[in-house]
Design a protein around this nucleic acid. Sequence first.
DNA 1: CGTTACATTGATCTCTCTCAAAATTCGTGG
DNA 2: CCACGAATTTTGAGAGAGATCAATGTAACG
Lengths: 253, 253
Amino acid sequence: MAAATAGACSKGCSKRWREGMSGPAPIVCDACPVADRAVCSALSPEDRGELARIGHHRRYARGETIVAAGDSATVCATLTRGAAKMSSIDRDGTERIVALVHPAGMLGQLFAPTATLHVTALTECEACLFPAAHVAALSDKRPALARRLLAEVSRELDESRALIDLISKRQAKGRVAALILAFARAASPAPCHDAETFDLPLTRGEMAQLLGITIETVSRTLTALEDAGIIARQGSHGIAILDRDALDDLASA
Amino acid sequence: MAAATAGACSKGCSKRWREGMSGPAPIVCDACPVADRAVCSALSPEDRGELARIGHHRRYARGETIVAAGDSATVCATLTRGAAKMSSIDRDGTERIVALVHPAGMLGQLFAPTATLHVTALTECEACLFPAAHVAALSDKRPALARRLLAEVSRELDESRALIDLISKRQAKGRVAALILAFARAASPAPCHDAETFDLPLTRGEMAQLLGITIETVSRTLTALEDAGIIARQGSHGIAILDRDALDDLASA
DNA sequence: CGTTACATTGATCTCTCTCAAAATTCGTGG
DNA sequence: CCACGAATTTTGAGAGAGATCAATGTAACG
């Protein structure tokens, strides 16, 4: 299933694995936290039931590979809980994060004959997986689904362009500030206002890749933001926003 | 129609305007250079004919605004000739290019109720414009079109991610090299191999915005590439690739 | 309790930005 | 067709931000 290099998890997942990371399980839409937002919401209950029988639900540990670049059996998945990253690997082995996926987002590339991107769990997370071919076939019969898929990919495109915005900030402070705000938005249950306290589910290395700066600069910048009283930190990943306006200013610079 | 600031063209287009930049004209698919590649190729001749009657064809001068951010009557357009850029404008007036569009590509945002991005002609170019609502309605009736639209947006997404790749290179040389290669690819009529000599239809300023570096650095980098015998220049926009391997090396760094 | 991975901090160097001026290109008008 | 003027591009010198190299600190796991 996974590509050769993707099996090893360097982040100490083995314990959690043994603790009972669940394998493939049936899909129960009634309990789905994103039933109203995800792509499947475009389907009638009957159609959704049919799709639910074809696909399955899985839980992933942090660091686990969800889709490996090179996989030929393309899946179309919806993230129901947690966060994931999509990344490409250069010939020289450098990883490059090209997208972050939050709950209700789609994982995988619906159209590529083989996946060109790795999809990796950033936190413990859950997803519903479907064979891409089935989804494509169903969308031919259900215009509402086709339209919803189109809207979802368009949304991903907008997000991708927002990411471009993020990393084309000139200064490191601006990039880090924008990243913090992006996660504040994603971490909030309500779309209208952001979370004030949340976890950045990225290592410093991942943040550095994403922002196009070095690990050291990320670290120094976070320290500077904390010293300036703009954020507070709890452990290495916990963030509390103390001065939202200052963060906005930095992010738009 | 256009936003306040978008009307002025600082690039001396007035003459070409007067020379007879054509206004809206009927669509003639027989003469279309991208009839086999564009989204409309998914339609039957009859459906395409119907769409052609609804939409119209226009030519744009370099620097002209095709879609202005804020436009509420959303159009769905196909670029048939030339090159265009999509960009957002920050609150502080900084332009940020988030996508380049080449022939057969789609312009505009099919789903946004109002456009969030400016679309501007980079070269003299031509496009077929359709009301987005009509295209969306037709795609509900024609699964083939819906699928083709989905594929197109997915392709745009891939391109957007490629752009992220481009601007997350650490060094300016790598970014410029990658940009040159991207245009070499786009300028070539054959998909299998790139053009060796072509025009970069961007000003230094546009390249700088795109790459997240300054005009001066772009200029210096091009000079350095020329001094190193990797490229040759003809005028300020003509590029000839002399050492493809060296360029590849720089671009992947 | 030691090992490993991750994060922070420090010192130095390189690259890019900034400010400034010269050179070139291109459109315009004579 | 040539000459002028505006915009763009190139080049230079100096300053600043981030990269790099290196070491210390901290947390998680076996």
